[in-house]
Design a protein around this nucleic acid. Structure first.
Lengths: 234, 234
DNA sequence: AAGTGGTCTAGACCACATG
DNA sequence: ATGTGGTCTAGACCACTTT
């Protein structure tokens, strides 16, 4: 366990534990340095991590303060993984519609940087929160990087499987978001009337070494999809 | 100018200048250290900045690589300011619908953490890209923090005015995003048929010292609103 | 084994905010 | 003036990847 990561976790835990509210001032840098017995640089790095995560904000010359918590039920858009964590207070379930191995279309192959003839898993799922349709999701995984998937695995959180079983290190992702009118087949799957709005998110996930491995399109039911984005300036 | 910031800018410029494509490897840490004549820590901080910004990614034991550029015309959702920069290749204009000083509603006062009786500017604008309606925007600015606004100022980029004229230091923001069916009045302003989809973004902006100063709701025309989100893991 | 990125330290010095 | 956060350094050591 990295030192700065551990310190960051302990500080975050302390905030949640004591239920410190927005604007509450934390102990000064020097106090935290003695408390956790690390160098200044390490402590600063821990704080930077928490700042990026939206847990605190730092004001030069003044102090370190607790930042507001996001509204419950909102899905954080910047975290890499699925929303398993964001909706932990809700009942999540998944229905698998399709799972097969195929040779990708030219467009998919290009996005995923596939070699000619390389195969991918194609997955189509419906995800529910509290028995309401949250979204339909179509994903392509490069078989080269994700060699095995089955119906059982993809009925749960795929990303947990990737990181914990396959020990895949996820690096970063690009997401494109837009709103449009649902197509008839989409509306039906989302249990919405024809011509309802839909929220479309295209994502491309990369491993830590920069290889794209998952291209997916998710279409959200607008009634149950609320997103949250925290931005910083630094 | 901070040293790490300057180094970061120079590296970013070099990438853009030489039009290095995704996956191109940059010189090694040690080479960059000698090239820019800074300590390792400073160089690493510069690289971290660029990594957060989505310009590069670093792979331990391997190298530093150029990350893919976002598609043109997409609006980055994590930068704090408006989209002036994202749409610099497009013709942007603004029509002011309303500008007045008022005593905020209980809800607005709560979000902005206003003292009793404190006044706010209320602004309503329509923004156009290439002569198409991009969005309608309603904002509340705390007069205490933004003491003066006029029609001319808000016809341009308000955030440029805040940072460059008022020297306001913007800290961070919370954004909430959802899709819904437009109300009749909204559809009319956006020049869309009744019952069209709309993309709603609520934002709360804070100064660097943690004071909320701007609460706004923006409703985007789904035909011209494409958003981009880059995520990292670190 | 060699090279590359990543963590950590102790300490000097700078910039900003508050009393 | 003091205290607070922020930058910067030189250098030791660690972890991962490549050859």
């Amino acid at each position: 366990m990295l030192k700065y990561q551990e310190v960051a976790d302990r500080i975050e835990l302390a905030i949640k534990d004591k239920k410190l509210s927005q604007g509450t001032r934390l102990p000064s840098l020097n106090e935290l340095i003695s408390k956790y017995d690390v160098s200044k640089t390490t402590l600063v790095k821990a704080l930077t991590t928490l700042e990026d995560k939206g847990v605190i904000y730092q004001v030069q010359g003044s102090g370190i303060f607790v930042r507001r918590q996001k509204r419950d039920g909102y899905i954080a858009l910047m975290t890499n993984m699925g929303f398993t964590k964001d909706l932990e207070n809700n009942k999540l379930s998944t229905k698998v519609i399709d799972l097969k191995i195929e040779t990708p279309s030219a467009e998919v192959a290009r996005e995923l940087n596939c070699a000619p003839g390389e195969e991918v898993y194609f997955i189509k799922r419906i995800r529910y929160v509290d028995n309401n349709v949250l979204c339909i999701e179509q994903s392509y995984f490069r078989k080269k990087i994700v060699p095995y998937l089955n119906k059982e695995i993809i009925s749960e959180s795929i990303f947990n499987y990737l990181t914990e079983v396959l020990k895949l290190k996820i690096g970063f992702s690009d997401k494109y978001l837009r709103t449009d009118i649902l197509k008839k087949t989409e509306a039906k799957l989302l249990e919405l009337p024809n011509n309802s709005p839909g929220l479309y998110i295209d994502e491309l996930f990369y491993t830590a070494s920069g290889e794209p491995f998952d291209l997916s399109q998710t279409i959200y039911n607008y009634k149950h999809a609320n997103f949250f984005i925290q931005s910083g300036q630094k």
